[in-house]
């Protein structure tokens, strides 16, 4: 239970996919110019992440080690394509209109592939699903935070509702450079909080051990 609990928790703060792992920068910067887009992207990714983690975890023991990455890519791309077709056919039009354009962006999303490789290929189905949920929620929260700040600064709106503070604000925030700048501020703030917390407890703040380069298996091909 404790393993499940910590898996569920870590994606939100300790190993947040955007703010700590710095994965998936491309959809992060593109879709966060607006909070509603960020939310839709987050929901679509969470859904795909949970399912792809479960599938990868199921096949993990039969996939030869040397070709596991191409196999995962094929699995995830197939899965997303089928979800796209099923959604277009059977989901209410409002849902497809809101989420449909985000699905093609997820096919090669490195969060999905990264979690398949770093977690689902080493853990059971339930833990992998929990990892998908937690990473998905962390991704959604980070995106919505970034999206809300950028949207408010650049257009004075939040979720397309005009807050009537200013009409034409800080234009650079609406563009990709603004995304990088804001992301930098959020990362700095997060590190500051982590370091302060460690100092109060009388410890030195290090990056979490499992994020260390030695624990990553992506380039360990020969074994």
């Amino acid at each position: 239970m404790s393993a499940l609990g910590s898996t569920l928790k870590k994606g939100i703060w300790q190993e947040n996919p955007v703010l700590v792992l710095a994965l998936g920068m491309c959809p992060t910067l593109a879709t966060t110019s607006n909070a509603s887009n960020a939310l839709a992207m987050g929901i679509a990714t969470t859904f795909v992440l949970i399912c792809s983690n479960m599938v990868v975890s199921m096949v993990r023991s039969i996939v030869p080690n040397k070709i596991r990455i191409p196999v995962y890519i094929v699995i995830i791309a197939t899965f997303v394509t089928i979800v796209d077709m099923l959604m277009q056919a059977f989901a209410p039009a409002a849902i497809y209109n809101a989420l449909g354009i985000f699905l093609p962006l997820i096919v090669v999303n490195c969060i999905v592939l990264g979690r398949a490789e770093a977690f689902a290929s080493k853990n059971g189905i339930i833990l992998s699903a929990a990892d998908g949920i937690s990473m998905g929620i962390g991704f959604t929260l980070a995106l919505v935070l970034l999206g809300a700040i950028r949207e408010f600064l650049s257009a004075g709106t939040l979720f397309n509702v005009n807050m009537q503070c200013w009409d034409s604000g800080f234009a650079v925030m609406g563009q990709a450079p603004g995304g990088f700048i804001m992301l930098g501020f959020i990362l700095a703030g997060m590190n500051y909080l982590n370091i302060r917390k460690a100092k109060k407890a009388g410890l030195r703040y290090d990056t979490p051990q499992e994020l260390d380069c030695r624990h990553c298996s992506i380039c360990k091909f020969g074994e």
């Binding site: 593109a30 607006n34 887009n37 839709a40 354009i101 962006l105 709106t157 397309n160 509702v161 005009n162």
Partner: peptide, 20 residues
Amino acid sequence: HNETPGIGTRIPDRVRVKTI
């Protein structure tokens, strides 16, 4: 359309902005 959300979608999407 399949334009990039937030960038290319400014062309095809008609979005109503409400005020608070």
